[in-house]
Amino acid sequence: MHESAEEWPLGRLLSAAARAVERDWDERLRAVGLTHAALVAIDILLRTGPTGADTLARTARVQPQTMSRTLERAERDGLVERTPHPEDGRRRVVAVTEGGKRAWDTAQHIEREVLPDDPDLRRRLLQVLRST
């Protein structure tokens, strides 16, 4: 006998819903040549401007090695470019390309299709995040 989702504990329901949305979103992003990880990096760069990979990793709350792999693929796919830091040639600055901006625009449309914005849901999810 299968247990009805209506009977699940709230934590299980939230986790299952998040996985379902992420699965759908990831499939749609892949169809346009974009990964969720690259989208996160591009989103941060569009908000903060060009920056270093370490700063991106901290902001995204991932390990530097994870961000490095994400940026390598995103650069190969023409979504970002890495150039030498103007003051420290050992470091590199990451910036979004025009192709990355177009991909970000497309991803915004996809996200609204997968999960249309709901102000009440947004408020409640923010409450959950702030309380943990």
Rank of each mutant, 00 (worst) to 15 (best):
D54V: 12
W25T: 13
G89D: 09
T83A: 13
R19E: 14
D26K: 10
L71D: 05
P116M: 00
L129H: 12
D26H: 06
V128Y: 13
P84Y: 02
A95V: 00
R23M: 15
D117L: 15
E72N: 06
R123V: 07
L56G: 01
A103Y: 04
L125N: 04
T59A: 10
R47P: 06
L45H: 00
L79V: 04
R28N: 01
H36I: 08
G78R: 01
V96I: 08
R19H: 06
H2T: 08
V96T: 07
R92S: 06
A95Y: 03
D117N: 12
L79C: 00
S15F: 06
T55Y: 15
P84S: 03
A74S: 07
L29K: 09
P9F: 04
R23K: 12
P119M: 14
L126G: 15
L115S: 07
V32T: 09
L121M: 11
R30L: 09
L34H: 10
D88V: 11
A38H: 05
L34F: 06
R58K: 14
V80P: 01
V94W: 07
R90Q: 05
H85Y: 07
R91M: 02
W25F: 05
E87W: 08
P86T: 05
L46S: 09
L79P: 04
A57I: 11
S131Q: 08
T97S: 11
V40C: 01
E3S: 04
H36Y: 07
H36N: 09
V62F: 08
R58M: 14
L71F: 14
E87N: 04
A60L: 05
P84R: 13
R76D: 06
E22S: 09
L45S: 02
L46M: 12
A37D: 13
Q65Y: 03
R92H: 02
E113P: 00
A37T: 06
W8N: 05
L10I: 10
E87Y: 09
L126I: 08
D43H: 14
E7G: 10
E7S: 15
W25M: 09
A103W: 01
E87A: 04
A41W: 00
A38G: 04
R102L: 11
E111S: 04
D105T: 03
P9W: 00
T106R: 15
T132N: 06
G11I: 11
R47E: 08
E7K: 15
A60I: 07
M67N: 11
